[in-house]
Write a protein that binds this DNA or RNA. Structure first.
Lengths: 153, 153
DNA sequence: TATATCCCTTACGTAAACGTAAGAGGGTTC
DNA sequence: GAACCCTCTTACGTTTACGTAAGGGATATA
């Protein structure tokens, strides 16, 4: 039942760089997790799926601002119901030196499909709600019948 | 890709009872499947899960009108988003000789919970739709920027 | 008898996104 | 130096409702 993340300490204690160079922009997995409200497992999972690739310091992951941006995109994708595969396909098209037209087109295409899926889902849910509430009425009535004129709660 | 059911013939051909007694009310799995638009696998699965228990003639399943009613309930349950477990728990409370108050209560309780789940789901979907459509607008704009004044499709 | 239909059981496969356990390696602190 | 805290890898487990394949009877028609 422990589905919470590690609840890391302030992670201020662990800082290997004595030089304190201009690399405060890199954060480790724990901070990343807290920052975005995801678990360590999730971050490693995304990496495993090729969605993000933090640099390493030994075996420790270090996330750059760019990695932050990628994670934001991942989470946005999840929020709108994209699968990780979808997100990856779109991200894979990213080219820092170009208009990224293809990427944008794919994103738009997938978005349209997702939009219609969402509409359908909502329709299904609405139907379910309708059925359910009519059923509840029926059940309540039946319960009422089976009860002497007592408190109806 | 063959997710269709067996497309059984009219099942009129196979009728073992020469006597033609008053048992036309019993149907075999194929007819049952067609009648309710489910697969044979599904029917067997429900049975395996203890949701329905057709009588047997040898090894062949024979569904009574009562089994029909049960299946209807199962499908209704599925439609409103109940799990098969939920449906079973409710069905298990059925007592032909009684007011079935407990059953009705449980059904109502589960219904209320399900209703709130559905509401939440709808909220999530609505959020997703909102995010998605704003994203689509952005993407479209970016695409427009990257295009000489050509056809916008 | 060959072919078509229907039925049966057993049992592995599937999808998605992680959860969770196990065992172990640093660095820090009291 | 024991106790913490953070991090790592490997790898099996979870959820739900069937899909699908394999191998085999039974019946009925051509």
């Amino acid at each position: 039942m422990t589905m919470m993340l590690d609840r890391a300490g302030e992670a201020v204690a662990n800082n290997n760089e004595m030089s304190m160079g201009a690399d405060e922009e890199f954060v480790r997995i724990g901070e990343m997790a807290r920052k975005y409200g995801v678990t360590l497992r999730a971050l490693r999972f995304y990496e495993d799926k090729g969605l993000i690739a933090p640099k390493r310091e030994g075996s420790t992951r270090l996330y750059s601002p760019r990695d932050n941006a990628r994670l934001k995109l991942i989470l946005l994708g999840r929020k709108i119901g994209f699968s990780l595969r979808d997100v990856k396909q779109i991200m894979d098209l990213y080219d820092p030196s170009g208009p990224n037209t293809k990427q944008l087109r794919l994103a738009l295409e997938k978005s349209e499909k997702q939009m219609s899926r969402l509409q359908k889902q909502r329709a299904v849910i609405d139907e379910a709600v309708a059925e359910l509430s009519s059923m509840m009425t029926t059940v309540r009535d039946q319960l009422a019948e089976r009860m002497p004129a007592k408190a109806q709660r």
